[in-house]
């Protein structure tokens, strides 16, 4: 069903047909375009940009704040290797506040392993070390004690000297000094030493020293352990006998 000649002629005549619109037609178009021009879309765009900027500022502020806090506590802890233990020096606890660097904590286990490896490489010192500590735990204990006590040998000496001087002063004043007074002086000196170890100069707490102190307290003696085991066993036997008699 193709287009016939009549339809072709119709097409030619109708396609060239033009009708002049009324005068008000353009005004209506213009009015509708004005109405449809929604300022909301533009506003949303600007709101989006503004929100983006605010978000960026907020995130950067938060980031800088957290970094500022972390730089205050930037701590680099390195444990003393075997050589330093043998040479009877204390493990280094280094506090290096550096801006722009994240906290670096050197894993003590890794350091211990390294120290063991280096120990194996050194023939002379290894014999001595093997005698002192044959396992990691032993090395840790050595480090702990050295952290706890060896760091403050000088302090202890000065404190003892202070206590002796105070006792001498009391003897000079009262001619007799009771054991209770000497005990109280020693206790005060001990407390002072503990505080010196745990608190740093800026009054912040030394985590390692605190841990070492607490762990020392936690260590129970072999005798205590025996007593605890006996106590548990006795309670179990007593409960079993009571249950059987029921």
């Amino acid at each position: 069903m193709g287009r016939n000649k009549f339809e072709k002629q119709l097409k030619e005549q109708l396609q060239g047909r033009e009708i002049k619109p009324s005068e008000g037609a353009w005004e209506r178009i213009s009015q509708q375009l004005e109405e449809s021009k929604t300022p909301k879309a533009k506003n949303f765009k600007w709101y989006g940009i503004a929100a983006g900027f605010i978000g960026l500022i907020f995130i950067s502020g938060l980031y800088l704040t957290t970094r500022g806090l972390s730089t205050d506590n930037d701590t680099q802890i390195t444990n003393v290797k075997k050589d330093s233990i043998l040479s009877n020096t204390t493990p280094e606890i280094i506090y290096e506040p550096k801006i722009g660097e994240e906290r670096v904590i050197v894993d003590s286990k890794v350091q211990e392993e390294e120290s063991i490896q280096s120990r194996n490489n050194q023939n002379m010192d290894s014999a001595k070390m093997d005698g002192l500590a044959s396992s990691k735990e032993e090395i840790r204990k050595v480090e702990k004690t050295s952290v706890q006590w060896n760091t403050s040998e000088e302090l202890i000496d000065t404190k003892i000297a202070e206590v002796v001087a105070q006792v001498a002063l009391l003897e000079h004043e009262n001619s007799t000094v009771t054991d209770a007074e000497i005990d109280s002086l020693l206790r005060g000196a001990q407390r002072q030493l503990l505080e010196d170890k745990i608190f740093r100069n800026d009054r912040s707490v030394d985590a390692m020293a605190l841990l070492a102190d607490v762990e020392h307290e936690l260590d129970t003696s072999f005798r205590d352990q025996i007593f605890d085991a006996l106590k548990d066993g006795f309670l179990k036997v007593r409960t079993a006998v009571a249950d059987r008699n029921k």
Binding site: L14, R17, E18, I19, K20, P21, S22, A25, W26, R28, I29, Q32
Partner: peptide, 26 residues
Amino acid sequence: APKMLGVCRRYIKDLQFAEDVMVSGF
């Protein structure tokens, strides 16, 4: 506009309605 009103007029008998359609088309 004159040509397009002619197009709309082919489909819609009433010239006024055809013009309405042309306006919304523009």
